[in-house]
């Protein structure tokens, strides 16, 4: 006697697709040991370089911690650029995008699944960098509030991956330039978001404009929480930054949903959604 499969619809379908897309990233992070090696050695080289820069300048030991935190957080930014922003473009190139579009599932669920898997992958890399670099350079942390640290991190991730979903639509529409766009958004963002130094050093207005990148406020808040013995390093009070990050998360996720719908509409109309060009 055959049993009929129950067709998933609505939220159930969204939920299943989300985990189906997140699955390869979560499993892949553990199955591929060589990936883990490359993913930790790449940021460690540059991070160690910046630690030595601070040491050469005779900076207090906490500044080496700033460099390590920045090096770890690059994992999330690079993940947003390359594994979120560029992903749909690569999926189009590899022939997966047409399967996504033809499937009954919503594209938004695929993007959210990519984000969930991406956060996991980047977290593995970030935690490894923090642990290894902290041991290598003897860095200590004074965490003022662990629940607040976790809350700030989660809200930052929600906002950041909302931005990543917007990038996915924009990069897909930009074709061959996607590669260069992602490249262009690396070092300039490391600079204006204060990855390796307190963003307040750039002055109020630069820090304010840079706050549109969620990592600017997120890292500033995390820095204030985990280096609580250092005074006057924050751009804004942690509570204010948390409220602003909540606003950013809502706005960016809504914009991501809108831009994906718009992209799909334009892509279908112009017949470019699954067109491959190199």
């Amino acid at each position: 006697m055959s049993t009929r499969a129950r067709k998933a619809t609505g939220i159930t379908l969204f939920w299943r697709i989300l985990w189906a897309r997140a699955y390869p990233r979560i499993v892949g992070a553990w199955r591929e040991k060589d990936w883990l090696f490359f993913e930790t050695v790449v940021p460690l080289g540059t991070t160690a370089g910046f630690v030595f820069v601070y040491r050469a300048a005779g900076a207090p030991p906490e500044f080496a911690g700033f460099a390590v935190l920045g090096g770890a957080m690059t994992a999330f930014w690079l993940n947003v650029l390359w594994a979120m922003g560029s992903q749909l473009y690569w999926d189009k190139d590899g022939g997966n995008l047409e399967l996504y579009v033809l499937s009954p599932g919503p594209l938004m669920a695929i993007l959210v699944g990519m984000a969930v898997g991406g956060i996991f992958m980047a977290s593995v890399r970030a935690v490894t960098v923090i642990v290894v670099a902290s041991l290598l350079f003897n860095i200590s942390y004074q965490v003022s509030s662990l629940p607040l640290l976790i809350l700030v991190f989660l809200v930052t991730m929600a906002a950041l991956y909302g931005l990543g979903m917007i990038f996915a639509s924009v990069f897909l529409a930009s074709g061959r330039e996607a590669w260069h766009l992602a490249n262009l958004l690396q070092e300039p963002i490391y600079l204006v978001s204060g990855f390796y130094f307190p963003v307040s050093a750039l002055g109020f207005w630069v820090a304010t404009f840079a706050s549109v990148i969620p990592l600017t406020l997120g890292m500033d808040a995390i820095r204030q929480i985990i280096f609580s013995t250092q005074s006057n390093i924050g751009f804004l009070p942690v509570e204010t930054e948390l409220i602003l990050l909540c606003f950013l998360a809502v706005i960016l996720l809504a914009l991501a949903w809108y831009s994906l719908r718009k992209l799909e509409e334009i892509g279908r109309r112009d017949g470019r959604l699954i067109e491959r060009r190199r």
């Binding site: 910046f50 820069v53 070092e187 490391y190 600079l191 130094f197 307190p198 050093a201």
Partner: peptide, 17 residues
């Protein structure tokens, strides 16, 4: 943009100290 940003990171790091 990329090289100038890379170098400015170093400039700011030293200027902070």
């Amino acid at each position: 943009a990329r090289p100038v940003a890379s170098l400015t990171i170093l400039v700011v790091m030293y200027s902070v100290i």
